[in-house]
Design a protein around this nucleic acid. Structure first.
Lengths: 294, 294
DNA sequence: GAGGATATCTGACCTAGGTCAGGTAAATGA
DNA sequence: TCATTTACCTGACCTAGGTCAGATATCCTC
């Protein structure tokens, strides 16, 4: 191997992972069903009930999809019926037996995953590395969703966010001591809460909280360490500004801590202006505002 | 996604990487040759000239391998002739045209690799993550080879080793200031130099240098950060002790620095006994010996 | 030098996966 | 209302990949 050549290192990675993925795929064959049918069963089990959707997700020709579907139907694993709203479409769901078969596949891939993870002396580091790779490879599938601040995605982000603040702030961080501990009113029309996800894994968040008729505060901007540099913070801020505008907000404010240097640099670069302290949060050192041009 | 579930995170990784690898594989199809033939051409180009070896490496049936080979032969890309030593065997090599075709595939996969790496804001971190994943997945392919201390593998390891010492020692590290800067005499029978590799990437090394008839010094034990915890240091030490025994050495000594805490713990756990300073190396703080039971 | 082992080749056959040209029935729009 | 579009199905056909049972030539061992 040309030791310093990044392409060679990437190809080594691809080789290692290909053989692992190959083993995973061929382990599905133990259930006496070709891979295509197993993949379709899996996709249906994950809630894809629309055939056209299935087709495009699995990248199948309409004839092939139809045949695979009939195969599963013949085994009694799925049932289809015409869509009530559009008689041409067919709605697909797993039968009782289909659910059992789906669960069997789930257990298979989970156990394979666990075998691999068990091989690692340091599973958290391995998972972090896998996240970083997956985030980079799939960065074009980034999506920003509005969620309830009590949803599991939001709670996960906030937990990670607080843990990171606790690591980075000199004296640690406790939510209860911050000025504004609850995220309950970050719900439209009093605010919003956005989560950035790639392939269903939340990687960043931002909250918005109205403080007046045309004024709101941006809070809890966070991006996972495994997704830094992909422009997620930027996307979140653009989205939250759009949301604010849609509420009729014209002025945004925020506060932040001196330990969060990258954030400070970003705010300055993205048109935020430093202003005087406007609250007594013990963790806040810097204060910014931004006027929105509607 | 069940956010805390490692298996789900692993599967997300597998999905992301599968689609990437799929894209890489299908990019090979642009050269009008099925994947199997392309893989065989690639393996031949990498120096596998023995058909049986090719077969087992690519996991092919003898009939299939023979057919693919004839296909490539028909295209004029490879030439075969009977093995001089064993007339049943055939020796395979690329023709002029085959080399050109091989190079074209090389360029293809390199350019795909570069596209992916360019997508990353921090290519070194991405490569480190890929190395960690590949090392873990392929840890059963670890092999320990004796190499010349001037070989490219050894020089790579030493460079990485010195760089790590420079990061970890309080006042930095300069080879020239160490007591024993050259590795030139770590060659049998005066010593040896071992490199640990997984899939051709060097991940660790250790040197042995005789200091007397039945005494030798262990030097330059290093394991890459992307491969810690896989037991490589242990394997290297076992191998170097075996090598020492084969030279008739009965007593090993070594020195190390207080910053290398894991190493200190390992030496103690593996039967090394702390002894008095035996040299004036400015970087050495601890001194150990171990008697070998032949 | 006979008999068995080994390396490769050949032809017959199979499956999974995929393409394509219609066909049917429902929905849509002028 | 009627032509067009859409969603799905069907049958014919193809390729890549893979298995298997011999056939052939060479090697090894006694």
């Amino acid at each position: 191997m040309k030791l310093e050549d990044p392409a060679a290192r990437f190809r080594r990675f691809a080789r290692a992972v290909t053989s692992e993925v190959g083993a995973l795929n061929s382990s599905f064959l133990g259930r006496g069903r070709p891979l295509g049918a197993a993949r379709m069963l899996n996709a249906i089990g994950r809630g894809r009930s629309d055939l056209a959707d299935l087709r495009s997700y699995l990248g199948l020709d309409s004839g092939l999809a139809s045949r695979l579907l009939r195969e599963l139907e013949g085994e009694g694993l799925v049932a289809t019926r015409p869509d009530a709203a559009d008689g041409r479409r067919r709605v697909i769901r797993l039968t009782e037996a289909g659910c059992r078969e789906f669960d069997a596949y789930e257990r298979l891939s989970n156990s394979r995953a666990e075998v691999v993870l068990a091989r690692s002396p340091n599973a958290p580091a391995l998972l972090a590395a896998m996240d970083l790779v997956a985030n980079t490879l799939a960065s074009d599938r980034l999506c920003i969703d509005e969620v309830h601040p009590q949803s599991s995605e939001a709670l996960y982000c906030l937990r990670e966010y607080y843990a990171e603040l606790d690591r980075r702030f000199e004296g640690g961080f406790e939510v209860a001591r911050s000025r504004d501990p609850d995220s309950g009113d970050m719900v439209a029309p009093r605010g919003t809460f956005l989560v950035a996800m790639i392939d269903d894994l939340p990687l960043g968040c931002v909250g918005l909280k109205r403080t007046g008729e045309s004024c709101a505060e941006v809070k809890r901007l966070w991006v996972s360490g495994s997704a830094r540099g992909l422009g997620i913070a930027r996307e979140l801020m653009v989205s939250v500004e759009e949301a604010a505008l849609s509420f009729g907000v014209r002025k945004l404010v925020l506060d932040t801590n001196r330990a969060l240097e990258e954030a400070l640099a970003m705010y300055r670069a993205w048109g935020w202006r430093e202003i005087a302290r406007f609250n007594d949060d013990p963790y806040a050192d810097f204060f910014f505002e931004k006027m929105l041009a509607g």
